[in-house]
């Protein structure tokens, strides 16, 4: 099975072609985002309903990682990544 390489918070992660961004994020970290109250959150529904797996993909904020296929060279920013920027 061929693979794609993308970047999760600057770290190169390889996943099978066709895998979601959520799969790539889960390979790198258990925390996708931080809730308004400061708690760690990760994917729950796997079908684009709960919005818990929101990450930044390239320039686009609040993308549901479970609904987007991983592509070569994508730059994904999770809660940990955005904290590092601040």
């Amino acid at each position: 099975m061929s693979r794609v390489v993308l970047y999760i918070d600057e770290r190169a992660i390889s996943v099978p072609r066709g895998a979601t961004v959520a799969a790539a994020v889960a390979t790198a970290t258990s925390r996708f985002r931080v809730s308004s109250g400061g708690a760690p959150r990760a994917a729950v529904c796997g079908m684009g309903v709960c919005f818990e797996c929101r990450v930044r993909i390239d320039a686009a904020l609040h993308q549901r990682a479970c609904m987007v296929r991983a592509r070569d060279g994508m730059r994904v920013t999770t809660a940990a990544g955005s904290a590092a920027h601040e």
């Binding site: 066709g18 790539a24 760690p40 990760a42 796997g46 079908m47």
Partner: peptide
């Protein structure tokens, strides 16, 4: 993190 839907985890796992 780590608590998912039952169908939810199934869907996520099918997609890598």
């Amino acid at each position: 993190p780590g608590v998912t839907g039952a169908g939810g985890l199934q869907a996520l796992v099918k997609q890598g």
